[in-house]
Structure formats: C-alpha cells, structure tokens
Amino acid sequence: MALAGIFLMLFLVSHLLTNLLMLAGDGGKAFDRAVELLGHPAVKIVEYLLFAAFIIHIVLGVILQLINYNARPVKYKKAPRTEISTFSRYMFHTGVIILVFLVIHLINFFFVRLGWAPLPETAAHSHDFRPMAVALFQNPWYSGFYVVCMLFLGFHLKHAFQSAFQSLGLNHTKYTPAIKIIGTLYAIFISVGFALIPVYFLFFYSS
C-alpha cells in the first residue's frame, strides 16, 4: 500500500511537471516533446509499473477498507469526538473520488491515445493532448469538476505522504516533524499545480 503509494506520488510529480509545460507559453512545443517521450521503451516499462501500482493501491485499499469496516460490525451511537486530523479518517472516501476522476481522466486522454475512444475534433492525432485538454478545460463544468477533484487529491496526499513513512517504519524523532511539513507542502504543490491548469485555460487563455 505504502510502497505503491510512494510510487504514485513520484508519478504525480512527473505528471504535474509535464502538464505545467502546457503553460510554458511556447504554444505547447515543450509539452509535445515531453509527450513524445511516452513512446520511449523505458517509459513504457514505467507505464506498466504505474498501472501495477494503481491496481495494487486500489485493490489493497478496497480490501483494507472492507476488513476495517468489518472489524467493527456495530458502530458507536455517539460519533467519535476525536480531535485528530479529519483527512486521515476519510482516506477511502477521498480515494474513491480520485478513482472516479481517474476513470474519466483515462477515458479523456489515455483511451484516446490507445484508440479506444474516438479522437476529438480539436486534436490532430492521438498524442495531441494539449488541444484535447484545452477544449475540455474551457468547459466550466469540467474545469470545476477537475479543480474539486484536485482538492480531494490534496487531502488524500496530505495524509498519504507522512503515512507512507510511518507504515514503512521510517520515523525519527528529529525528521518526522519535517516529513509532516514536507508532506503538507507536497500535497499543496500537487493539488494547486494541477488545479492551475484548468483555471488558466478557463479564464486566461484564448485560442
């Protein structure tokens, strides 16, 4: 769970950096070059690993949730009044939202690339992601949905980052507080980073 999660967190960084190239102001050249790299055999291997990580993370998440739910067949009448972080209590819920997003996201982009979904009119070919994204983001409903999902992704990540360290036993009196701060910064960076793109294309971009 934690290992797959860490892999996914690394992936998110590279994905975000790639996406941010869309805002580079060069008409998407840098972004397109980055997209071309996806065809490289090494990246292919990583892509399979990525799928494996997603599947492991999701399947384990569901199994754990089922076991955990079952570990308390009768719930408390009085809701728990603990003053601990709320995000941590709802990892499964935020996870499900992210999963829904992931499916839509895959249909919109990845399936197009594979040729499973029809090519949108705006795109020249199946790797031409930028115009596809621009078109989607200019729909306020889609952008809104995207931003909200990124918010939940941020919640998920805020807990996930330090939690992964804890699960792997990597804690230390000195460094753990720092890890917690880095985790929060990481979560903000990822969610705000991704959310910037639709906001940019919706409000500040005209083709």
Partner: peptide, 25 residues
C-alpha cells in the same frame, strides 16, 4: 479480527497512558 492501521493516530490521542505511535513505526 482487528482492523489495519491507517495512521489516523486516534489511538495515541485517546491512549490514557499517552503511548506514542512512534512505536507503531
């Protein structure tokens, strides 16, 4: 039949002896 840890740290918060989740790590 206990559940798994998802690192919410509610245990540490409510432990009457204040036992730290560092021990879980």
């Amino acid at each position: 039949g206990f559940g798994f840890c998802s690192n919410t740290y509610g245990c540490e918060f409510d432990c009457p002896k204040g036992i730290s989740v560092d021990f879980i790590a």
